[in-house]
């Protein structure tokens, strides 16, 4: 019995749900969380993002210094971004399939910020309706 915790982009929630159903796993618990990952270290990538974000700033309502400060706070790895945390209970054999499904649904071309999947053992589970325990309680 395993617990799979997946942190994914907010706008990938529906894609993840669909991917889980396709993988034959309908049940999940999802909550809104904030998160951050490893900071991007490649200066070229940071510069590119910075230019892109600065272009988006509205210069009439915000002065250049303030815009620069806000953009840097987005890129220095200290800011938390909204994400969705899925918690899925699974039989041991289903774990690779579920991970494959979540990965496929969430991979983007951005190369950072797509999220992380944690797999951990759980000792027991109980279905409240019937009182079943162990593997039978999962699905």
């Amino acid at each position: 019995m395993k617990e799979i915790m997946a942190v994914v982009r907010m706008n990938k929630t529906n894609a993840t749900k669909k991917a889980l159903i396709d993988a034959g796993v309908a049940g999940f618990t999802a909550i809104k969380v904030l998160g951050r990952g490893k900071p991007v270290e490649d200066p070229a990538v940071i510069q590119e993002r910075k230019n892109k974000l600065l272009e988006m700033a509205v210069h009439e309502s915000i002065d250049a210094e303030e815009a620069e400060r806000q953009v840097v706070s987005f890129l220095d790895g200290s800011r938390l971004f909204p994400r969705r945390l899925f918690t899925i209970l699974a039989h041991d054999d289903d774990v690779p399939r579920i991970i494959e499904a979540i990965t496929r649904a969430n991979k983007t071309e951005h190369n950072v910020g797509d999220g992380t999947i944690f797999v951990m053992p759980i000792a027991d589970a109980v279905r409240v309706r019937t009182g079943e325990t162990g593997e039978a309680a999962i699905w």
Binding site: T103, K107, N111, G113, T116, F118
Partner: peptide, 12 residues
């Protein structure tokens, strides 16, 4: 808690 496996999606 022990963590068995970790996958980073962007790195795949």
């Amino acid at each position: 808690t022990p963590l068995e496996e970790v996958y980073t999606i962007s790195r795949g």
